[in-house]
Design a binder for these strands. Structure first.
Lengths: 348, 348
DNA sequence: TTGTAAGCGTTATCAC
DNA sequence: GTGATAACGCTTACAA
């Protein structure tokens, strides 16, 4: 018995111990303990082995099994920042779906650094994950190519690469944006400002596309002085962008449609600072429905993404991929829900 | 070559392939590729092997190594609900600390079900995690005993068992509560109500203890009609508890000190509903400093827990435990920060 | 400094 | 229905 064994392996009972105690061969024990093969063993032996295994306190060693079967029952999940509130519900949904099949999630927090993403993928690949979920996919993403190279079952979630080279599950961003524009139009708004997000991400693009589509449909032409882009969709950026729009002077927009809730919060603050009341003077909409969005002042009218459902479907898709890697590649869009609160006023 | 190999193992280059190509033995390659042993190999060989490994696209197989070394470089993290905003920053901190050493986190979302916690631990143990972080520890917790049984390096975070049987890193809950009570006392409040949390958790207990201590120190005796307990620290429970306090009639408390922010939000809503302005008529304090707490109406005066730092120290402690399982067991308390905003008024 | 050989715990394959 | 055997890819005494 060497040092390693003493450290923690000592006394650990293994399949061969159970076999010895039960007077059967190790392969028999293995078959008893495996859902797929225990049907081929006689009931009496099954009972005896199970009982003895329990009695001995046998715990399966998934890493040994994994070495043999080339499958670890573990899926990687790479995010920019787990502290960003959009990820936890997705993660929860993924776990919910995978957990049913006994799979577990190995987390990787990349912190917006592409090299970190690559490093994490490397570490996960070394651990022989069965598949990986990417919440970081850019429109064209070397990490996605890497996954393809490894022929690693991969699903993109929330964001997706421009070319449909991998499966993905996303919020229907364009739809949500169309619906919220339709809403403000139906409330009588005509001069509609828009603060758009980064165009390097599928979400930013889809939302802008949805905005444009809804404007056209309503026969409205966006005033270019009232269209702004932010590099990072943050409170600060929203504040600055909204400030710039208001500084353009008359005619002022009656509503600012924002790419997300944080930008909307920034915009509300900017309005307030310049003496405009929201929604009295200017209405503002968000997107995402972050926690507590309904408790802000004013409660934010926004688009609720069903993130946990998105995560759940991602997990399901991963499961499908794992059992049949040749199935067709698809993009799944989950319909968001318009969430009406008080930050949009009707105008006459 | 069997089916499994074809599935994904096919073409994977292994240490023996590198060895063959480099004209050395596999053990030499192994030594070159391991940080601890590559110093023992001649520089020329190191260079050649490294180059060839790279050229062949060699990727280490951590599961094979793990089987041999009995160590997976993976740490489990079990939480109640990853969607509860206190966990992501902790997770981030843990990852930050562990990542430096190349370790990764395997997540387990238990959903408040003790059986689920046990099941997750089982799955993690099967995967031979090197250690586990428990964010779910109750005062007396069978799961903790289980970890001890497995002699699995274990660290409790945020909550901790009553007996110091395992290492833990927690917020200094009592201190934060004392400070916030000191604050309201210094603002002139004397009739101080308190909505306390569940007493089955170390956090709930510590906060109540802090409240009592600060009251005594100030020479104040809590009015028992103004002391309430909630089973779940939620907005709804806070609403109900605050409502009950207000229904007690005169004399009304001038401030309600709440066990956490959600309860405080519920309390604010309850006050408003009964026609009391916060902080005009009644001041209210929270605890936790959840995201956007500063954007509520009114912005919440609360206690900010340095959760990421707590997570980081948890990771560090795990690392220490992993390199020396015999070190002394300790409780580490991280000092929170009083966060003054507008939900507490000075009274004359 | 490098090679030899055994072994980590499991399961797949083949035989009976 | 069960047993024997080899193999998964790596690390590590021990030997040279």
């Amino acid at each position: 018995m060497n040092k390693l064994q003493r450290d923690r392996g000592a006394g650990r009972v293994k399949i061969s111990d159970v076999a010895k105690a039960a007077g059967v061969h190790t392969s028999t024990v293995s078959r008893v303990l495996n859902a797929k093969t225990f049907g081929r063993i006689s009931p009496e032996v099954v009972d005896r082995v199970v009982e003895i295994a329990r009695g001995l306190g046998y715990r399966p060693n998934a890493v040994a099994a994994g070495l043999r079967t080339n499958s670890t029952g573990t899926v990687g999940f790479i995010v920019h920042d787990i502290d960003d509130p959009i990820y936890p519900p997705i993660l929860k949904g993924i776990e919910e779906a995978l957990g049913e099949s006994g799979l577990m999630v190995l987390l990787g927090n990349a912190g917006y650094a592409p090299e970190a993403e690559a490093e994490l993928l490397e570490r996960m690949a070394a651990r022989r994950i069965d598949g990986v979920v990417l919440a970081t996919a850019r429109l064209r993403d070397p990490l996605v190519d890497r996954c393809l190279d490894y022929s690693l079952p991969t699903v993109a979630v929330v964001r997706r690469p421009e070319l449909t080279v991998i499966n993905s599950v996303v919020n229907d961003c364009a739809l949500g944006m169309r619906e919220i524009v339709d809403l403000v139009v139906s409330y009588g708004h005509r001069d509609i400002a828009h603060i758009a997000g980064p165009q390097g991400l599928s979400t930013g693009r889809a939302r802008l596309r949805g905005f444009s589509a809804a404007m056209s449909k309503a026969g409205l032409v966006p005033d270019l002085r009232h269209l702004r882009f932010v590099d990072q969709p943050t409170i600060e950026a929203g504040h600055a962008a909204a400030g710039a729009i208001l500084d353009e002077g008359e005619p002022r927009p009656s509503v600012i449609v924002c790419v997300n809730d944080l930008v909307a919060i920034g915009a509300i603050n900017a309005c307030r600072k310049k003496g405009f009341d929201c929604p009295g003077d200017i209405s503002i909409t968000g997107y995402n429905d972050i926690p507590l969005a309904g408790l802000l002042n004013p409660p934010l009218t926004t688009v609720h993404m069903r993130l946990q459902e998105i995560g759940r479907r991602t997990g399901l898709r991963m499961l499908a991929l794992l059992s049949d890697n040749n199935s067709e590649i698809a993009v799944e869009r989950v319909r968001p829900e318009l969430t009406l609160r008080q930050s949009v006023a009707r105008i006459s």
